[in-house]
Amino acid sequence: MNDPVLTLKGVTKTYSKGKPGAVEVLRGVDLSVGRGEVVALVAPSGAGKSTLLHIAGLLDTPDEGSVMIGGNEMVGLSDRRRTIVRRNDVGFVYQFHHLLPEFSALENIVLPQLARGVPKDEARLRALDLMARVGVAERAEHRPAALSGGEQQRVAFCRALANEPRLLLADEPTGNLDPETSDTVFAALMDLVRATGLSALIATHNMALAARMDRVLRLDKGGLSQG
């Protein structure tokens, strides 16, 4: 694989390590996501997909193994450096949108850019462009409570991409939506990912959605397999 954006090698993770009842969640996981590639991560509930995504996104650390983003080793970095990489290089989308309720949809997308030091006018223009791409530009001044579930999640996609990350990590991004809305929202996400050329690792239970991605990985009993 040329120019992998994300590489995990020999990643292990055990909760309550060394104690009775310890749970080995990841067992020597190897994974690569290439530049511009969209990979589906399919796993039964409790198999460790959220743990894998958190380790890939530097929200958790492996017990053993290597985590590389853009060819740079992340294991062993200081908390400050990990925070900078998360802010600049990684976008997150969750099953629930987690938008800030006191701010408008537009402001929710502008705020991460301001935290990075982007001028306010530039941040607003990028936010509006992203919202237009997923069909919610006319909802820019509405607060999250005034948006439908599908609109909230599309705004969350825009927020995740606001700082132009090289990697998108999504954990059941349409899992909280009805089937029809899920299909529409997922199509908007894929259009946005393809248009921006970033790499993505997307966890889903929906095999129909997984089949629309470039490659499918299955996580079960702590290990990964193809398709």
Score class of each variant (00 low, 15 high):
174 T>S: 09
53 L>V: 03
155 V>A: 00
65 G>L: 14
94 Y>I: 01
201 L>V: 08
27 R>K: 15
58 L>R: 05
6 L>K: 08
142 H>D: 15
147 L>K: 04
165 P>D: 07
61 T>R: 15
98 H>E: 03
53 L>P: 07
144 P>Q: 13
184 T>H: 05
126 R>A: 10
139 R>Y: 13
145 A>W: 08
16 S>N: 13
82 R>T: 01
95 Q>L: 10
37 E>W: 05
210 A>Y: 14
118 V>D: 04
116 R>N: 04
177 L>R: 03
159 R>V: 00
82 R>Y: 00
149 G>R: 05
197 G>K: 13
58 L>K: 11
29 V>M: 15
39 V>W: 00
176 N>M: 04
61 T>Y: 05
29 V>D: 15
10 G>Y: 10
91 G>F: 09
108 N>Q: 08
112 P>T: 01
175 G>Y: 15
25 V>I: 14
203 A>G: 07
131 M>I: 07
190 M>P: 05
28 G>C: 10
160 A>T: 07
33 V>F: 13
152 Q>S: 11
115 A>M: 07
70 G>N: 14
133 R>D: 15
211 A>Y: 14
68 M>F: 10
37 E>Q: 13
188 A>R: 06
83 T>G: 11
173 P>F: 08
88 N>C: 08
49 K>S: 01
119 P>Q: 04
216 V>F: 02
135 G>L: 14
159 R>C: 00
198 L>P: 09
44 P>H: 10
11 V>C: 05
38 V>I: 07
190 M>I: 14
168 L>F: 12
8 L>C: 04
58 L>A: 05
12 T>W: 05
68 M>L: 15
168 L>Q: 11
198 L>R: 12
54 H>R: 03
176 N>W: 05
6 L>S: 04
186 F>H: 04
223 G>S: 12
66 S>P: 10
186 F>K: 01
97 H>G: 00
40 A>T: 05
149 G>C: 12
193 V>K: 02
79 D>F: 05
57 G>N: 01
49 K>R: 00
108 N>P: 10
10 G>Q: 14
224 L>I: 13
45 S>L: 02
59 L>Y: 09
144 P>A: 13
221 K>W: 07
88 N>F: 06
166 R>Y: 01
27 R>P: 04
44 P>F: 08
145 A>G: 07
72 N>Q: 15
150 G>K: 07
32 S>E: 15
154 R>Q: 08
17 K>D: 02
173 P>C: 07
2 N>W: 02
88 N>S: 09
86 R>G: 12
24 E>A: 12
118 V>K: 00
111 L>A: 06
177 L>W: 07
47 A>M: 12
165 P>V: 03
55 I>Q: 00
190 M>Y: 11
80 R>D: 01
56 A>Y: 04
163 N>E: 10
52 L>C: 10
185 V>S: 08
182 S>N: 02
133 R>T: 13
111 L>W: 01
67 V>Q: 08
11 V>Q: 06
164 E>V: 02
156 A>W: 12
105 A>L: 03
95 Q>M: 13
151 E>G: 09
120 K>Q: 03
191 D>I: 10
142 H>F: 14
161 L>N: 11
219 L>S: 04
189 L>W: 14
176 N>S: 15
174 T>Y: 07
9 K>M: 09
194 R>H: 04
76 G>H: 12
17 K>R: 12
200 A>P: 11
223 G>F: 01
94 Y>Q: 03
